[in-house]
Design a protein around this nucleic acid. Structure first.
Length: 434
DNA sequence: TCTGGGGTCCTAGGACCC
DNA sequence: TCTGGGGTCCTAGGACCC
């Protein structure tokens, strides 16, 4: 059996961990630049706040309905996610971390009797709550797709299920599928759901389970991907659990700016910082990259001022993780595509064509690069700043924290403290004097 | 004034080869 | 030059996920 663990309204729950008085209050979390609503607590959903709502348009409504809003605090969410995943791993080592707020557990080695699965799920819930303060729900079923179905229903009927639903017998599975609209099947987007309805009149997962053939599925509904989903729906394992971190094929760091920028120096400053951010992610998986890409774009919502978006790719002479080399390339590329007559609101960096740093035989020349890679972060940053200053002149790269007055810095007017990742933001508990 | 930022996988079709 | 029937490799873009 496979379990999926899903952190309920994860970002909102993270904000609540250190603000327990908000546990019963409606909360939303905003996207970068405080652009739109990307996460809602149940109470905010009930209050009618829509996913993706544009913040400046609904701000009045939020205030009026006393909905608390937060800028996204990814440092906090990332750290809380690590805590939840470590807790899950301590219970069941066979784990696939699927996203920041979801994980699959392969229960094959756990030796849980068929009638003990619900109990197991409840234990996991309590342990995660106790150790992290994050509420979760759990779906358990023979395949990933069915576990997802179970989890969705567990969440929907939280009172009845206590956040845990097991689909084991055929009867349980069929009645769950009957209660699941096509578009809520994992791997079926609105396109597939729409097409299934208009061609065959299907509306629920059960319709698909009963009446779809593998042949039609493969030919008309997403090829092998669609086929795998259909098989999983029928209880046949077709999507494997991949434990262990999967190396990324490309790494990106892209952002919209706080305000439009129109000078090359601001743009190179932003690109340099984005490149450093992407390199940090690359360092995590111990890769070196050979391809660097950049892009920039004007405001796509204001095409009347002229729309310009362009990307450029470059190949480095050898795979490298040396910030100096990669940033130099990225800056060179952005210079090539920069046109002074436009104002830009977005830019980004891509890294690709990775090679494993650990497995590589290093040439004499590359050894000092490798040393750079193994230095501590602050040492590396110092080296980076020094070399870039030499190369590009002063002020091309600024510390993100010191660039607070840069126009390209994100707008984040409602950010909570970095409770768990910055000593200065450590919560203080004051006990009443006796 | 104000609209996120990442990822994955697959397919079709073009270029090229014999 | 075209013809048939294979291949391979690459890229763009679609569809989907969180």
């Amino acid at each position: 059996m496979i379990a999926i663990v899903d952190c309920n309204s994860f970002y909102a729950s993270c904000e609540r961990v250190f603000r327990p008085e908000l546990r019963t209050q409606p909360i939303v979390v905003l996207s970068n630049n405080d652009g739109c609503v990307i996460a809602r607590s149940d109470e905010a959903k009930e209050a009618g706040i829509k996913m993706g709502a544009v913040f400046h348009k609904v701000k009045g409504e939020l205030d009026q309905k006393k909905v608390h809003y937060f800028s996204s605090n990814y440092q906090l969410y990332g750290d809380m996610s690590d805590r939840v995943m470590r807790c899950l791993q301590s219970i069941n080592p066979d784990i696939e971390v699927y996203s920041i707020d979801e994980a699959f557990l392969d229960l094959a080695q756990a030796n849980i009797p068929a009638d003990g699965l619900v109990e197991f799920g409840k234990k996991v819930r309590i342990k995660v709550w106790r150790e992290t303060g994050i509420p979760i729900s759990i779906g358990i079923a023979p395949t990933k797709v069915l576990a997802k179905v179970a989890n969705r229903l567990a969440k929907k009927a939280k009172q009845k299920t206590e956040g845990v639903l097991v689909l084991q017998t055929k009867t349980e599975i069929l009645s769950a599928l009957a209660a699941t609209p096509l578009s809520d099947i994992w791997g079926f987007g609105y396109k597939k759901a729409y097409k299934l309805k208009s061609l065959f009149g299907m509306t629920t997962a059960l319709d698909c389970y009963n009446n779809m053939t593998e042949e039609i599925m493969r030919k008309q509904f997403g090829g092998v991907v669609g086929l795998r989903v259909l098989r999983e729906l029928r209880g046949e394992r077709s999507i494997s659990i991949s434990s262990g971190a999967v190396e990324k094929q490309h790494i990106a760091s892209t952002r919209s700016f706080g305000q439009p920028i129109n000078t090359l120096s601001e743009l190179t400053e932003a690109i340099s910082v984005y490149t450093e951010r992407a390199l940090q992610k690359m360092e995590h998986q111990q890769s070196a990259c050979k391809t660097v890409g950049v892009f920039l774009s004007t405001d796509r919502f204001k095409k009347e001022k002229g729309y310009y978006a362009k990307s450029a790719y470059g190949v480095l002479p050898h795979p490298t993780c040396n910030p100096h080399e990669v940033i130099e390339k990225a800056v060179e590329l952005i210079r090539d595509i920069f046109l002074p007559q436009f104002s830009y609101i977005k830019a980004g960096v891509f890294l690709a064509s990775f090679e494993d740093v650990g497995a590589r035989q290093l040439s004499l020349f590359e050894q000092d690069v490798f040393e750079t890679a193994s230095k501590s972060k602050s040492e590396k940053l110092a080296t980076l700043l020094a070399t870039s200053e030499k190369k590009f002149g002063k002020k091309q790269i600024a510390m993100a924290s010191s660039g607070i007055d840069s126009k390209w810095q994100m707008r984040m007017s409602h950010c909570s403290p970095h409770y768990t990742t910055d000593w200065r933001d450590l919560p203080v508990i004051s006990l009443p004097a006796k």
